[in-house]
């Protein structure tokens, strides 16, 4: 099982980001990580939350255009070259990385959220290399 990412379309208007965060807070949806990317006209807010399905339902009800998609949340060591090593493995197998952002874990561990082509296949590849990933179940407890 891969991890789920919640994406929200937001037009560049004062206060829209705040509205999204307020909806999530009111419904007890905990944000573990986020990335906001924008152009001059609109932005995409990508979130890793403890309950993406609930987040999607509540935001849709408030009129936001949202989608839940599959991503990989990969644990990496805090040491030089670990991210590069990970990307090399994926690229060797022709897995395309669309974007990524960080997600911090307790203690010494870090992780990255990666949007790739073929997420299920990418996960199998990583598993074979003994690289651990977080599933949606893991996120629920965070």
């Amino acid at each position: 099982m891969v991890a789920k990412q919640l994406s929200v379309f937001i037009e560049n208007r004062q206060g829209r980001l705040g509205e999204v965060l307020a909806v999530l807070k009111e419904n007890g949806v905990n944000i573990l990580s986020l990335s906001l990317a924008d152009t001059t006209e609109y932005g995409l807010l990508r979130l890793i939350v403890n309950d993406s399905q609930l987040g999607k339902e509540m935001l849709s009800k408030e009129g936001f255009s949202t989608i839940v998609s599959d991503v990989l949340v990969v644990k990496i060591d805090h040491k030089c070259g670990s991210l590069q090593g990970l990307l090399t493995i994926l690229s060797k197998e022709n897995i395309n990385v669309e974007y990524m952002y960080g997600l911090s874990l307790d203690g010494d561990q870090a992780s990255v959220v990666i949007k790739t082509s073929h997420p299920e296949k990418a996960m199998e590849i990583l598993k074979a290399q003994k690289i651990s990933t977080l599933t949606n179940e893991d996120l629920k407890d965070m």
Binding site: S7, F9, A37, E41, S65, I67, S69, E98, K115
Partner: peptide, 16 residues
């Protein structure tokens, strides 16, 4: 109004 959803800029830009 955008009624479909996406997590990709390429899709949005392509649509506009």
């Amino acid at each position: 109004e955008l009624v479909s959803s996406t997590d990709s800029f390429a899709v949005l830009e392509n649509l506009s």
